[in-house]
């Protein structure tokens, strides 16, 4: 994806997974990114992009490969560029392959999602000077309704025993994989439901692959860290 992303066509359409994940990754008050594992957001946004394509019936997945079902444009420039990349690959590849490809395009995905959330008037863009010289850009919340609604829905799902719909199962899977869920729902009621959360998080293949990629990277980094004090 080399060309810059443009905001989605309709400001009142439901949030995409890419937008939703980024919104939930930002702290409500400060507008700063919540702490996440190394490349946590990169893989979560890549997974969200694949989930958006899957729910638009453009791709399908199994543990071996990701296949294109329909090359017709979705009308969303971000999704259509990704779909074009997948469709023109010489052979079908695995989900983990495409997660790696799109995780490397985190800045494009993040910028596009931020632009869209600002265009929807959910976030505002704020420039601040740090030490009077360095520019720091923050995205404080203007309208918190979307965040409150999704958190209320996911909280009821975690604390209750209802079956999730596929959309919420994907969202919980991506949030769990990127360790964001534990940041968002951080109290004893949710800690007591860790088994339920694990069950919900397993339901989506892309989410499972995102978790595997992030965990593998964390293991590699732990192994590669030199022992101090020798």
């Amino acid at each position: 994806m080399t060309t810059p992303a443009t905001p989605s066509a309709h400001p009142h359409s439901p949030l995409s997974f890419v937008e939703e994940i980024l919104l939930l990754a930002l702290d409500d008050t400060t507008g700063a990114l919540r702490p996440m594992p190394v490349m946590g957001l990169d893989y979560a946004l890549a997974g969200a992009l694949l989930a958006d394509l899957a729910l638009a019936n453009r791709i399908d997945t199994d543990p071996q490969q990701l296949v294109v079902l329909d090359r017709a444009p979705t009308g969303d420039p971000l999704l259509d560029r990704a779909l074009g990349q997948i469709a023109t690959a010489p052979a079908p590849q695995s989900v983990s392959h495409w997660l790696g490809v799109f995780a490397s395009e985190r800045s494009t995905l993040e910028r596009a999602a931020l632009e869209r959330l600002v265009a929807r008037r959910i976030l505002a863009q704020q420039e601040k000077k740090f030490l009077w010289v360095f520019g720091v850009r923050r995205y404080p919340t203007v309208d918190n309704q979307e965040r409150v609604e999704v958190r209320t829905r996911l909280s009821a799902l975690i604390l209750g025993d209802e079956l999730p719909d596929p959309r919420d199962a994907i969202l919980i899977s991506l949030l769990t994989a990127s360790h964001l869920l534990a940041r968002i729902f951080d109290d004893a009621r949710y800690h007591a439901r860790s088994e339920r959360i694990a069950t919900l998080a397993r339901m989506d293949l892309v989410g499972r692959e995102v978790a595997a990629a992030i965990d593998t990277l964390a293991r590699v980094l732990r192994t590669a860290t030199p022992v101090m004090g020798m």
């Binding site: 899957a54 399908d60 997945t61 079956l163 719909d165 339901m203």
Partner: peptide
């Protein structure tokens, strides 16, 4: 013989709608 992620989503939706 085979079920993909799209098929699993149909199963999950069917179970939820039935309930």
């Amino acid at each position: 013989a085979y079920v993909s992620s799209a098929g699993l989503r149909v199963f999950l939706t069917a179970a939820k709608k039935s309930k």
